[in-house]
Simulated assay, not measured.
Amino acid sequence: MAYKPSEAITWPFSLILLLVLSVVLACGCAMSVRSTPTEFVPDSRTGFDSELRMRRDVEIRLDTGYRRVISAGTRWKRVGRVSEGEVLKPVGTVFSIEGRHVHEAYLVIEDGLLRGFYLPAERAYSPLSSPIQLSGAIR
Rank of each mutant, 00 (worst) to 15 (best):
1 M>K: 04
2 A>W: 04
3 Y>N: 09
3 Y>Q: 05
4 K>V: 11
4 K>C: 10
5 P>N: 08
7 E>Y: 13
10 T>A: 15
11 W>I: 15
13 F>K: 15
15 L>T: 15
15 L>R: 15
16 I>S: 05
17 L>V: 10
18 L>P: 10
19 L>T: 12
19 L>K: 10
21 L>W: 03
21 L>T: 01
23 V>F: 07
23 V>G: 02
27 C>G: 10
27 C>S: 10
29 C>L: 08
30 A>Q: 12
31 M>T: 11
33 V>Q: 03
35 S>I: 04
39 E>K: 00
40 F>P: 01
40 F>R: 01
42 P>N: 06
45 R>S: 14
47 G>Q: 05
49 D>K: 14
50 S>Y: 12
51 E>G: 09
54 M>G: 12
56 R>A: 13
56 R>Y: 09
59 E>W: 14
60 I>R: 03
60 I>K: 10
60 I>C: 06
63 D>G: 09
63 D>C: 09
64 T>E: 01
64 T>Y: 03
65 G>Q: 07
65 G>H: 07
66 Y>F: 09
66 Y>H: 12
67 R>S: 15
68 R>W: 14
68 R>K: 14
68 R>P: 07
69 V>I: 12
71 S>L: 15
78 R>L: 14
78 R>H: 12
81 R>M: 08
85 G>T: 04
87 V>T: 03
90 P>N: 11
91 V>I: 11
92 G>I: 08
93 T>R: 11
93 T>F: 11
94 V>H: 11
95 F>V: 00
95 F>Y: 05
98 E>V: 02
100 R>M: 03
102 V>A: 03
103 H>A: 00
104 E>D: 07
104 E>K: 00
105 A>R: 05
106 Y>W: 06
107 L>T: 04
111 D>I: 04
113 L>S: 05
113 L>N: 03
116 G>R: 03
116 G>H: 07
121 A>I: 02
127 P>M: 13
129 S>N: 14
134 L>G: 02
135 S>P: 07
136 G>C: 10
136 G>L: 12
137 A>I: 09
139 R>T: 13
